[in-house]
């Protein structure tokens, strides 16, 4: 009788561990959304938006940050459910005041969730990006 009780208790303990792991414990160290903010660190380019592109069709997209950010400024923090591997697009103009023709810079990125700070810099006429 005692051994049955012991067996049931250890089984319950194993099940409880698994349930907590599947249930909620992983939320303590895993983020299911990304909070993105970017810094326009270019000398004279204005960023007018940031989108997530469709992989198959680069003309289709979903806007993540819809803000005009002047050189030297930061965007606000925008939280979305993008966690995984995606193609991002930065829309920008070659002028410091947001006027002129819109260009775009597309790059692949891996988002693991949590707070992300993206620094956008000049690279000739185009841009370069890195997360900090």
């Amino acid at each position: 009788m005692k051994s049955i009780f012991k067996c049931a208790l250890s089984l319950a303990a194993v099940l409880a561990c698994c349930m907590t792991l599947t249930g909620c414990l992983s939320h303590w160290f895993v983020d299911s959304s990304s909070r993105l903010q970017f810094l326009n660190s270019t000398a004279a380019k204005t960023i007018v938006g940031l989108d997530v592109m469709q992989q198959q069709d680069t003309s289709a997209f979903r806007t993540w940050i819809d803000e005009t950010v002047l050189p030297g400024e930061r965007s606000r923090v925008h939280e979305e459910d993008w966690v995984g591997n995606f193609k991002l697009r930065i829309r920008y103009t070659q002028s410091p005041d947001g006027s002129g023709k819109e260009s775009q810079f597309v790059f692949d990125t891996k988002l693991d969730g949590g707070s992300l700070f993206l620094i956008v810099q000049d690279e000739g006429d185009s841009l370069s990006v890195h997360f900090r």
Partner: peptide, 23 residues
């Protein structure tokens, strides 16, 4: 019963936007 997946990279969702991590 229920399926137990310790890692969210085990069953990613392949949407038109890319690969989403999740369960």
């Amino acid at each position: 019963g229920f399926y137990f997946l310790p890692s969210r990279a085990q069953t990613p969702l392949l949407s038109e936007y890319g690969e989403h991590k999740g369960f």
